[in-house]
Simulated scan of single mutants.
Amino acid sequence: MNPMPHRHLAGLKAQVSAIGAGCWTIGGPATNRGTPIGWDGVDPDTAFGGLVRAIERGVTLYDTADVYGLGHSERLLGKLLRVAARHDLTISSKVGYFAGTARHAYHPLQMRAQLATTLDNLGTDHLDIYFLHSSDFGPHDRYLPDAVDLMRTWRTEGVIRAVGMRAPHRFAEEWAVTDGPQAAETRRWLHLFDQVRPDVLTARYNLLSPLYADHETDIFRFAHRHGVGVLIKQVLGQGLLLHAETSANQRQYSAGDHRSTDPAFTPDNRRQLHARLAPLRVRYGPSPTAMARLCVQYALHHAPDAAVLVGFRNASQIDTIIASLDHPLQADDITQIRAVLHASPHTY
């Protein structure tokens, strides 16, 4: 068992564990203004055991949000911080998505209230990264200037060390000057990036992420050019990439589980995904452990300057993810994966 590797996270200017604990899952089921945003089947004690195991296995990066379980995830992580050395850890949370009051999520009063609640939930006096969780800044971006000013003020005061921002799921900088379907979204995001000037981005990347042509600047190349760090999320496809499709896992989800309304979790879509991944299961093994190794190593190989956030429910899942670090993929593995899943680079 090799020691946990670390990566230098640009923007934060700090070393973090290559694997970070993504704490969305452990928030449990929840709804945000009627929209399901949580996860079923989470036992708090078992989830806390996963956090403890992560510390034991060398994980130093923990990502949560005020809206994950409507504070439950933050409070579980806060329980860990009471028994762990805070200065050894990188803790990130988020603001801007919670819709629990009449005020807009980015109204200055609401942002101050949410930050105070987050710090109280975590039992800490600062965050290492504070993410703007949503790109909705009100009509005509009414709350954008105040939100940016607050984040910069908190960074200057040391209440946060770095400002974070979400990247689009699909992004090439060059799309902004085309008339393609992603042009407007790309221009909008580049405008927000220019206004916010974040230190760290979160970006979705996994086996199914599109490939880009050589002339296209994807989010990782873009971030590197701007000196911005990247945390990779959804490397396991929210668990869909791990498990072979069977009648046993065609389960029903509660009204507080986001999978109850996510089209990716319908039986038809899961069957299609199973067929698409079948050649990889034959080559690398059908078990969740084998697929976890494939998912994690694929992301780490693609972005050597980024850290990977992985969701979990218990200590066993933490062990499975970290065990994958002992078996890196080779160049021919990457070629094989892309040949199976992507016929050609994805362009618009």
Rank of each mutant, 00 (worst) to 15 (best):
R313F: 04
L211R: 14
Y253T: 06
T261E: 09
R313G: 06
F220A: 01
G256D: 00
I321F: 06
S247N: 13
S316F: 04
L207M: 12
Y205S: 00
V308K: 05
A213D: 08
A275H: 15
I318Q: 05
R271Y: 07
E216Y: 08
A223D: 05
R283K: 15
I322N: 01
A203Y: 02
D199Q: 04
Q250S: 13
H215V: 09
A203L: 02
P286W: 07
D218Q: 05
P210W: 01
D268F: 14
Y212Q: 03
A292D: 04
A299T: 03
R276F: 03
S209L: 05
R204W: 00
H258P: 00
I232H: 02
H301A: 14
R281H: 13
G227R: 08
H191T: 11
A223W: 00
G256W: 02
F222C: 07
Q297C: 11
L207P: 05
R313W: 06
A292K: 05
N269V: 15
Q195N: 02
R313E: 07
T202M: 12
A315F: 09
V230M: 06
N269D: 13
G311S: 11
S209I: 05
I321V: 15
A203V: 06
Q195C: 13
G227Q: 07
L231M: 10
A306W: 03
A248L: 10
S247W: 06
Y253E: 09
L277H: 03
V200T: 01
H274C: 13
R276Q: 15
Y253H: 12
A315V: 12
T320N: 05
D199C: 06
S254K: 02
L211D: 04
A303Q: 08
L309A: 07
S209R: 11
D218G: 05
S209C: 08
R313Q: 13
L190N: 00
Q317L: 09
T266P: 08
Y298K: 08
G237C: 13
R225N: 12
G256Y: 02
N206R: 08
I321W: 02
V228K: 00
Q250A: 11
G311F: 09
L273H: 14
E245D: 15
A306T: 02
L236T: 10
T261Y: 03
A223C: 04
T217N: 11
K233N: 10
E216R: 03
A244N: 08
L201G: 01
Y253Q: 11
V228W: 00
Q195W: 00
R221G: 10
A223I: 01
D194G: 09
G237V: 13
L300G: 06
A303K: 02
P304C: 12
F220S: 01
A307G: 08
